[in-house]
Nucleic acid binder design. Structure first.
Lengths: 163, 163
DNA sequence: CTTTTGGTTCGGAAGTAAACGAACTAAATT
DNA sequence: AATTTAGTTCGTTTACTTCCGAACCAAAAG
């Protein structure tokens, strides 16, 4: 049982960084990943993660607005059972796609600006090192976005098969 | 000339987020990207970005330790001319490769933990939805890391060709 | 209709990060 | 030798984030 909490701390640090979650949100997220389909109650989270009700509440809402978690209820039981959302992967992927799309747009803006400046100084050259970089990089970003989109499709297919 | 500062603000926000730079480091970075091979002096940065000498100094050091920028000097001129490092792309890619590698390792840890728990409850099933996800995701991460590595090689080739 | 349960909300405290100012250094200039 | 230039260092201030406690609410139970 303590192996779980050790993993929560260890993986928690990673998701804080990779997904920009608050420390507590990240720990809740990992805890719920490890807990599986059963999920965990509000109470369990306050006890296991040793955090206040208010912090747990705030961070559960944050994770819900992120589409990373949901909850279900049991008949005749007032508690909510929070668990990882089946589509949490999709949400993470969407966020990454969005980030790479921004990168693409910004790369273009940089390219446009530099081209304009070079032309202005009659220095524009199609074989310029910078311009070659830019083209390579654009291709690469496209590839990354395609991979992300493809994975998203694969996962959506798996989800639909099973439902 | 004000188009440049507008771009610095706009793109600055993106790199803050995408590369985890401080606001000022991000703005310096974008400013130097737009300034091209000529670079910019310490003084120019304090004036254009309206920041104190100490903040500029600290953030220039940060960007240098990141391998994102370097400087050159002109004969008979005491100033340093800071500019984007030719390998700044490589450094960014290395950081991203590292992040995905962590993701791979952590994905494996989650898989191991869940498998152990399922086996413990005699619930392990090779066709389990979770396990299928995990395999898909591993393949995907491998692909992302390969793309990143491939791009890195392409860029290294371009750099070497030109030198 | 009072109490308990399962949360939410809000104001503030504590901790962290970013930027600053002032004092400093080392080299170059006068 | 004294001053200016080009930066660095360090202690402080400011801003922002995270978390908490206490008061609160709505539904269920006694």
């Amino acid at each position: 049982m303590n192996e779980k909490l050790a993993l929560v701390e260890e993986l928690g640090v990673h998701f804080e960084d990779a997904d920009n979650l608050t420390p507590l949100a990240s720990r809740i997220f990992v805890y719920l990943i490890l807990n599986g389909a059963e999920g965990a109650t509000f109470e369990e989270l306050t006890e296991e993660l040793k955090a206040s009700k208010s912090s747990i509440s705030t961070n559960l809402q944050l994770l819900q607005s992120n589409k990373r978690i949901t909850y279900y209820t049991k008949c005749g039981d007032r508690k909510r059972y929070f668990k990882i959302s089946p589509s949490h992967f999709i949400s993470r992927l969407d966020e990454k796609i969005e980030l790479w799309t921004k990168e693409l747009v910004n790369n273009q803006k940089i390219y446009d600006y530099k081209k304009k400046m070079l032309e202005h100084n009659n220095n524009y050259d199609e074989n310029n090192l910078n311009i070659q970089f830019n083209k390579q990089y654009k291709e690469f970003i496209d590839k990354m976005i395609n991979n992300l989109t493809e994975l998203k499709q694969n996962i959506l297919t798996i989800i639909n098969q099973k439902q």
